[in-house]
């Protein structure tokens, strides 16, 4: 079963990425986490994302395109990256989520991936 680990981070977490005093620890934590998942052979796909400062949000209202700088909602935690993993069940996915560095500082949302859509006409 495939699950997406939606890795949320705080503003502090994003700041640590580029802080010379903390960047080593920050990236080391993620490298270890991703390495462990890779070693277990469960990664389907995944990426880290640039911080919310680089986000752009688009909405179409009354046929007009509205573009805003920033993420879709101003919350304390923002999406920092995602991984789709293939494991037996939610409990196994939660065990992996618990190993993510951001589980301690922010949160990890775990969602099952929808099975592929049937081809049209079937």
């Amino acid at each position: 079963m495939q699950f997406m680990l939606i890795l949320n981070e705080t503003a502090d977490d994003f700041a640590r990425r580029n802080d010379p005093a903390q960047a080593g620890d920050y990236w080391g934590g993620w490298t270890a986490f991703i390495g462990a998942m890779a070693q277990a052979g469960i990664i389907v796909k995944g990426d880290g994302l640039q911080g919310p400062h680089a986000a752009t949000t688009l909405r179409i209202r009354d046929g007009r395109r509205m573009v805003e700088d920033g993420p879709f909602a101003d919350t304390k935690e923002q999406l920092g990256g995602y991984f789709v993993i293939d494991v037996g069940d939610l409990d196994a996915a939660l065990d992996w989520a618990a190993k993510a560095p951001s589980a301690v500082t922010a949160s990890v949302e775990v969602r099952p991936v929808l099975p592929p859509m049937p081809a049209p006409g079937q």
Binding site: M1, F3, G88, D89, L90, D91, A92, P112
Partner: peptide, 10 residues
Amino acid sequence: RDAGLRFAVP
């Protein structure tokens, strides 16, 4: 069913 919970003794 949808969230894929485990049917087992932990």
